[in-house]
Structures are given as structure tokens and as C-alpha cells.
């Protein structure tokens, strides 16, 4: 029983090592601590929601999907004007794109950075402010705990060793690949959040981790920006204005620029 587990782990480790090597070869992983610029060739901007999937709705009828697209188009323009790399949008009009396809776009284009843009929605009308998310490690912790638990539980182990459960193995591998980027993602989140706080004058809700689907599938540093609450009537009106949208784009750009250490 123990041997099989080790076998399985070894297999996992080998595959994970392959993934990690691939990640290391990727141009993103230039170490900033060593003073190098982080050179990337392609970044992906993901306007949250779209099409039938409206995202959160405001009291005055504004939809999250429209605001995220407007901000994303503005961000794309600023980045292209000021930085020497390609910017790809996961959608550039009001269409449905599954989350799976959004991460596939990033991975197929070998994106070095991924920024998902959202406007927040809460049940509480008073909820307000901006926050930046990166992937929660809970899933990984859970897997670790599960493996520890399995050492003392042979019947579940049997089912885990079922050849049809290779999905689990893939999940562990994805977690490991994601883990490699967590530090960079958290740094990017921190810098973007500082700029949002400085430029928008919205309540600083800080950087947070959450198990967001869009962040789990992307194989590069990735953040999800929640700029203000569309469910808060005062913030909804701000979000609907082109001025405020431009400020959000500018704030994200400044955070990104600091992260990439390109002079502003």
C-alpha cells in the first residue's frame, strides 16, 4: 500500500518536475530579486463575464460585463502604447466565453501575465471599495491533508489508485504549477492594489486569496482585480463613467509597470 503511494507520488513528481522545468524556461520567470527586468512577450487581459452571463447588476441597470470590457479596452490601449509586448483580450465584444476557454487563450498564447478585470457585487448595498485577488492555496493544502489522511485509510486508497482517477493526479500537477507562480501573483496584486488605492479613492479592501476558477487554469502569474462595487449605487455611478474607468485602467497599468520595473 505504501509502495503504491510512493510510486504514484514519484510519477506525480516526475511530471511536475517536467512542468516546472517548462515554467523555468518560460521567459516570465526572470528573477526580479536579482535585479533583472521581467521580460514578457504576451500578456492577457480578461474582461470578466460577457454575453448571457452579465455578472453583477447595479441598481441603475449597469452590468458588470460592460464595465469590465470598457476598462479592459482602455488598459489594453495604455499597455500597448507604453510597453513593448503583445496584449491579447479574452473577448473584445459582448460575447459568452467559458472560463475554460479564457485560460486556454492565455496558455495557448504562452501569456507571461494574466489580469482578469471585474467589478464587485455584494448582497449588502453598503459594501464598497476595491480589492485584488490571487489564487487561494487552499486547494493545495487540502490535497496535502488528503494524502496524509490516505496513509491511514486503505479503503479510500484503493479507490484513489483506480486507473480512472488520473484526473486527481492532473489536479495535483496543476496545483504545483500554480504554486510556482503564487509569489509573483501576490507581488503583482500588491502593487496593483496600492495604485488602485492611490488613484481611485475607494476603500482599500486589500489583497486577498480566493479559489476563483479563472485563476486556477492559467499557467503564469495571474490576478483578478475587483474595482469598486456595482451593487453600491454611489460606486455604480462612478463605474459607469468613462473617467473612472480610465482611472482604473491607469492604476492597473501603474501597478503592472512597477511590477515589470519599466520606468513610468
Amino acid at each position: 500500500m505504501k509502495i503504491s503511494r510512493i510510486h504514484r507520488t514519484a510519477r506525480g513528481a516526475a511530471l511536475a518536475a517536467a512542468l516546472l522545468v517548462a515554467a523555468a524556461v518560460c521567459p516570465v520567470s526572470g528573477d526580479a530579486a536579482a535585479g533583472q527586468d521581467r521580460r514578457i512577450q504576451t500578456m492577457v487581459i480578461d474582461p470578466g463575464h460577457g454575453g448571457m452571463e452579465t455578472g453583477a447588476k447595479g441598481k441603475f441597470g449597469n452590468l458588470e460585463k460592460d464595465i469590465t470590457l470598457a476598462i479592459s479596452l482602455k488598459l489594453k490601449a495604455i499597455v500597448e502604447r507604453n510597453m513593448g509586448f503583445e496584449v491579447v483580450l479574452t473577448r473584445d465584444k459582448d460575447v459568452d466565453v467559458s472560463i475554460e476557454n479564457r485560460s486556454a487563450i492565455a496558455n495557448n498564447r504562452k501569456a507571461g501575465l494574466f489580469i482578469s478585470i471585474h467589478a464587485n457585487g455584494a448582497v449588502q448595498k453598503k459594501a464598497a471599495g476595491s480589492e485584488t485577488f490571487f489564487l487561494s492555496l487552499n486547494a493545495t493544502d487540502e490535497e496535502t491533508r488528503r494524502l496524509a489522511y490516505l496513509e491511514n485509510n486503505s479503503s479510500e486508497l484503493q479507490s484513489r489508485l483506480d486507473p480512472s482517477s488520473d484526473d486527481d493526479l492532473m489536479m495535483i500537477l496543476w496545483d504545483m504549477a500554480q504554486t510556482a507562480y503564487i509569489k509573483q501573483s501576490s507581488r503583482l496584486a500588491e502593487l496593483v492594489q496600492e495604485e488602485l488605492d492611490a488613484m481611485l479613492g475607494t476603500r482599500n479592501r486589500g489583497i486577498k486569496q480566493a479559489p476563483f476558477k479563472i485563476l486556477t487554469g492559467v499557467a503564469c502569474p495571474a490576478i483578478l482585480v475587483e474595482a469598486a462595487f456595482i451593487s453600491n449605487p454611489a460606486e455604480e455611478q462612478k463605474l459607469a463613467s468613462a473617467d473612472f474607468q480610465a482611472k482604473i485602467a491607469e492604476a492597473i497599468y501603474r501597478g503592472l509597470a512597477r511590477y515589470l520595473r519599466v520606468p513610468e
Partner: peptide, 17 residues
């Protein structure tokens, strides 16, 4: 389902938080 409304990943079990 992928998510309830485009955000939180439902494909994995949740621990309480």
C-alpha cells in the same frame, strides 16, 4: 457546474472557512 456566477471554482470540494 464550473461556477455559480463566473467566479468561485466549484470543481473541487470546499473546506469550511
Amino acid at each position: 457546474k464550473e461556477t455559480l456566477g463566473g467566479h468561485v471554482d466549484l470543481s473541487r470540494p470546499f473546506l469550511p472557512d
